[in-house]
């Protein structure tokens, strides 16, 4: 075994486990700076606040795993909660019915994305960029750009605790993670999502219905986005015109930081996306507590995404190089 190959292998192992390495680093960093951080309360808070980003990021992971991207999740969150909120105002719905309507709206939104990407074959980022703008426009048209407040019956969910121990957002986040993990690892569709992301053409040749698999990924992403939107609204109490703007950023960042490759086929929901979402939340909590200028936050999160994407790209190049070696008979 020669030196460069050895070095590459170590580097690759490091890059593969980057989420854990980063997370531990960040955790220790915060711990040293603010010893309070290790208390249960602050950890619980971080996870609770990360829950809605995490749920959206889990959906995003499905799309990224197929090698696509969904920029419209923020608009989806906004539009589906606006629709739910308006229905509550108009028809005095129960929380459960509002929830169903919210998810239904998210599903419809996602089906549009899926149709445009898989049937009309438009490049994903352009397709979802268009639905991002159109979706927010539709939402603001429906809401007349006014904030829509949600009744107490729903906001109660945001602050309630299961058995008076675990906050509901965390429970729902955990359930989402579990459901997504089962979908990806214990169903045929999930395995096929990985196959499609590895190589679309090979997947087609292997007899996989690639159109359906990619569509499923977009639909899962949209449904989770509206779900995350609902939970976020339950914590905030109302939907204003800027709700969900930039959430696509946080979701992509959480997924990519969690080790999901933008190039498809690589990464896992657990613990990857969980760590990614908590990291994003830790950073923004940390910035607030360090009293960093509010205007700097978006710049810092942009830098973090840049680093995550750079790492992902480097890992992909390395993997390709190592596969090239495999051409040779050893």
């Amino acid at each position: 075994m020669n030196m460069t190959a050895q070095k590459n292998r170590i580097l690759l192992a490091a890059l593969r486990n980057m989420p854990i390495i980063l997370f531990v680093g960040l955790f220790l960093c915060f711990g040293v700076l603010a010893p309070d951080f290790f208390r249960y309360q602050s950890i619980e808070n971080a996870v609770k606040q990360a829950s809605y980003v995490g749920i959206v990021a889990v959906g995003m992971a499905f799309v990224l795993l197929t090698g696509g991207i969904d920029l419209s999740v923020g608009s989806n969150m906004y539009l589906s909660t606006v629709v739910a909120g308006l229905c509550i105002q108009r028809f005095a719905l129960s929380p459960a019915a509002a929830f169903v309507i919210c998810i239904g709206a998210g599903f419809t939104f996602a089906m549009t994305n899926a149709f445009i990407v898989t049937r009309l074959r438009v490049v994903p980022f352009i397709a979802t960029l268009a639905t991002l703008v159109a979706g927010r426009g539709l939402g603001r048209m429906l809401s007349q750009s006014r904030a829509i407040s949600f009744p107490e019956t729903i906001t109660r969910i945001g602050s309630a605790r299961l058995f008076d121990v675990v906050p509901y957002p965390i429970v729902l986040f955990a359930l989402t993670l579990l459901a997504a993990w089962i979908m990806l690892h214990r169903t045929q569709w999930g395995r096929q999502i990985y196959a499609v992301g590895y190589n679309l053409e090979s997947a087609r040749k292997a007899g996989i219905n690639t159109v359906r698999i990619r569509a499923i990924a977009y639909v899962v992403c949209g449904v989770f986005a509206s779900f995350g939107g609902f939970i976020s609204v339950a914590q905030l109490g109302n939907v204003n015109a800027g709700f969900g703007r930039g959430s696509e950023f946080d979701a992509i960042a959480a997924a990519v930081l969690g080790g999901i490759s933008l190039f498809g086929g690589i990464g896992s929901i657990f613990p990857g996306v969980l760590l990614g979402a908590v990291m994003i939340q830790l950073v923004s909590t940390g910035l607030v507590s360090a009293k960093v200028d509010l205007y700097l936050h978006s710049m810092i999160s942009a830098l973090i995404i840049f680093a995550a994407v750079a790492i992902d790209s480097h890992r992909t190049i390395l993997l390709k190089k190592m596969q090239q070696r495999h051409i040779r008979i050893e």
């Binding site: 096929q192 196959a195 590895y198 690589i266």
Partner: peptide, 29 residues
């Protein structure tokens, strides 16, 4: 070869038709 390097041997063998536990659609690992 038409294989998926990111998946295990067993996944590759059954990628277009896994054995399933009835009804739920879960894989029979």
């Amino acid at each position: 070869l038409n294989l998926f390097g990111n998946l295990s041997i067993v996944d590759n063998l059954f990628i277009d038709g896994f054995p399933k536990i009835d009804r739920l659609g879960l894989l029979d690992k």
